[in-house]
């Protein structure tokens, strides 16, 4: 085909206005952008461990999107609930951390100071701890290091 154009229309985003069928119970999408999600990721992983694993097991049964809608709704509700709880109890620390991530290319190592505050606040209020699976035993995890080698790069 003698055309330099791709067979897609990029001038407008692909939006399908049709709603979900009424047979599917509605759930509000989380709508959180990447930096807050990254900031809360380890807490989501811990708080929603069971529903997440349930969902992923369901997905491994069948990749069809229609197969795991119910489990998927539970996942989204759980994450929404956690974000709401975090905002209720640790709003200032949460905002400080994700805005730091936003400004530092979303590098965790650049935001250890606000992260420490967030972690301690979440631990006292929600009893969730950030643990990285597979970290070497018997030494502080990378976010608990006193003197990390990698911090902010070029600033």
């Amino acid at each position: 085909m003698a055309s330099h154009r791709q067979a897609v229309f990029n001038d407008q985003p692909y939006v399908d206005p049709n709603p979900l069928p009424t047979s599917v119970p509605p759930v509000d999408e989380l709508g959180t952008t990447s930096a807050p999600l990254k900031s809360a990721s380890f807490f989501i992983g811990q708080y929603c461990k069971e529903v997440n694993e349930d969902f992923m097991l369901c997905k491994s049964e069948n990749r069809d999107p229609a197969h795991c809608l119910k489990e998927g709704r539970k996942v989204t509700r759980c994450a929404t609930e956690l974000i709401r709880k975090m905002r209720e109890s640790c709003l200032a620390e949460f905002d400080a951390h994700w805005q730091c991530l936003e400004k530092n290319n979303q590098y965790f190592q650049a935001c250890r100071v606000p992260e420490k505050a967030l972690n301690s606040c979440v631990f006292t209020k929600l009893n969730l701890t950030k643990t990285i699976p597979g970290s070497p035993e018997g030494q502080p995890q990378v976010h608990e290091k006193e003197k990390p080698i990698f911090t902010r790069v070029q600033k």
Binding site: L37, S41, G45, V51, F55, K59, G72, A79, I132
Partner: peptide
């Protein structure tokens, strides 16, 4: 791991 923890959430939304 921060990405792994977010996979179910994003996959569910996409599904």
């Amino acid at each position: 791991w921060s990405r792994i923890h977010l996979v179910p959430l994003i996959l569910a939304e996409q599904d």
